[in-house]
Amino acid sequence: MKAPAFNYARASSVQEAIDLLSHYGDRAKVLSGGQSLMPALNLRLLAPEWLIDIGPIVDLRRISVESGLLTIGASTRHADLHRSPDIAAHAPLLKDAVAHVAHPAIRNRGTIGGSLAHADPASELPACMVALDATIVVLGPDGERRIPAVDFFVGIYETQLLPGELLVAIEVPKRAAGVRHFFSEHVRRSGDYAMAGLAAEAEIDGDAFVRLRLGFFAVGERPILATAARHLIGRPVTEAVLAQACAALDDELAPQDDHQATAGMRRYLARQLLVECIVSLLGRSDLRTKVVA
């Protein structure tokens, strides 16, 4: 189908975008890369009166590194993330993850800010933000808010963003030496939304995890920082420990049925991803046991 009729305003600065958003409130939607918004418009799932195009704001498309922090402008495209040496050096999890986001033509337009503000529970980048303990920087008429990623995502397509606010940047702590990461997802076809996925980051001392952040996606209404990780931290990981973590993971997930996978299948895939993640991070193929369905 074709998009319904709407008015269009082009913002040339962040302040202008915030002024426009404040004026139109929930009658307006922000247009950035448009790779989630345009399908929703074309499918007539949305019918905003106004689109505020932030595409021309060049300041929002940048990646900078300062002391311990990587700052990513909201309009930074997936393709930018994939080829950035700074991302490869300081947040390699993101480099791995964006390769799984849709297809090259979509990655050339889609932006990180758009993906996070859209908050599809099956998309990759929100879960990465949770795993990386990122901070979402939001500007509005009342100034700046800095929201931890774990609090930012509220539900299906729902975040803490208020009408009149604009997501402007994402701050990711630079990866410390020795930190390892894992990213994997199960999809029907390459580029599809995941049936279950996991973005993880870990610090390891000898044979034990010192820190382990497990960001699951497509297994609930929002990306989930799995508390099951607590079973795996601070002690040698055995088959029994891993089984305990899998059981705990199962308790905290609330996946839904849809046309791609049943809730039960998503639970199974999530447990399998957890096992694969631990095997990969610890380099322990002996732990690759059969996950009980």
Partner: peptide, 20 residues
């Protein structure tokens, strides 16, 4: 699929006015 500023994109997911 077309090229915009050298990159392939989905032309159904870009508004003509965005191609200004």
């Amino acid at each position: 699929t077309v090229r915009v500023n050298g990159d392939i994109v989905r032309s159904c997911l870009i508004l003509a006015i965005q191609a200004e």
